[in-house]
Computed example of a mutant assay.
Amino acid sequence: MTKHERIDLYQDVTNRIVEQLENGVAPWVQPWSSTASGPSLPLNVTTGRRYSGINVLLLWGTVQMCGFTSQRWLTFNQARKVGGSVRKGEKGTTVFYADRFVPGGKEAEEEARAIPFLKRFTVFNIDQCEHLPEDMTGSVASLPEREIVPNAEALLQATGADIRIGGDKAFYAPDPDYIRLPPQNAYFEQINWYRTAFHETAHWSGHKSRLDRDLSGRFGSHKYMAEEIVAELTAAFVLAELNITPTVRHADYIGSWIALLKEDKRAVFAAARLASQAAEYILAFQSNDSCLAAPFSRMVA
């Protein structure tokens, strides 16, 4: 892919997301609201690998737009190899694979000489296919909405983050390294407490002792909004993996997101990449007995 094609690609994808935001839809906030699909990260159904970064946003957006009932995907050739096929006339969704290579294959070359490249692939939702094996198309049980979600409580506990409950504000304080959250019963819809909790835990993951992101941006600045998008995406990714559906719409953020994305066409690519890293970092604290944990209870007046 030429340099000009890469630039156009960044702009094309950013334009698509800005258009969705201008229509009042954030694909990372409500990827499942208008469909029968349960909340989950997109998955390649033949390899078992979850998509990450910008691909999550692109595939979530397609699910929402087309009303697909699944977050499971595969390529045309993968469908054929398992005895299925893509139905005639179906339109695929483009996803991307980014990596670097050193000219001549010399591993000893300096990292600075590595050349980035971007490859495109077209994938199809299993709803667009037929004759796939039953184990690829079976329904996935969804978690009913409830005030206390044991696996989410367990994950918050397992991170070891200093989470202080109380007051009427939610924030992460980098220097003392703690999270402040309002009590869950202060929320009109209590399931949304988890979105706030993992949003702030996303900021916590960026501390210099963890993933070392730049958390120095002042309110309203480019750096601040860039980190806010990372935190929003991280929360969306973690909640999807935990099978939790929040209802909050984030209308207060959308105007700022549009301004940032129009200013920097690479912003959403960087945010999605950093959010995938943060979500993986947080989710790595999960344990097999997470569902047995007691509700989160650390309280500060």
Rank of each mutant, 00 (worst) to 15 (best):
P103F: 15
W73E: 04
R120C: 13
A141P: 04
L59D: 05
N125K: 06
T75H: 05
L155S: 08
P133I: 02
S142R: 08
I148N: 15
L132E: 05
S70L: 00
R146M: 05
F117Q: 08
G104S: 10
Q128G: 08
S70A: 14
E111Y: 13
L59E: 04
T93A: 14
L143Y: 14
D99F: 12
T137D: 01
I148F: 08
L132G: 02
F121A: 09
K81T: 07
K91V: 08
W60F: 00
E107L: 14
L118N: 03
L132C: 00
L155V: 06
S70E: 08
G104H: 13
Q64P: 09
G89F: 07
T94S: 00
R146F: 00
G167F: 13
N151S: 15
Q157K: 06
E147Y: 04
G105Y: 10
G138C: 10
D135N: 11
Q71C: 14
T94C: 08
K106V: 11
A158F: 08
R113D: 07
G84N: 05
N151K: 08
I115W: 04
T93N: 03
N151Q: 02
L132H: 07
E145V: 11
R87G: 08
G138S: 12
V102L: 09
K88I: 11
K119Q: 14
H131D: 15
D135A: 06
P103W: 05
I148G: 02
R87W: 02
P133N: 01
L59K: 05
N77Y: 11
G104A: 14
M65Y: 04
A79N: 03
A79I: 01
S139M: 00
K119T: 01
V140T: 02
S139C: 07
Y97A: 10
Q64Y: 13
L143D: 12
P144E: 03
K88Q: 11
V123K: 03
E147Q: 04
E111N: 11
F68K: 01
R146K: 10
R72Y: 01
C129L: 04
F121R: 09
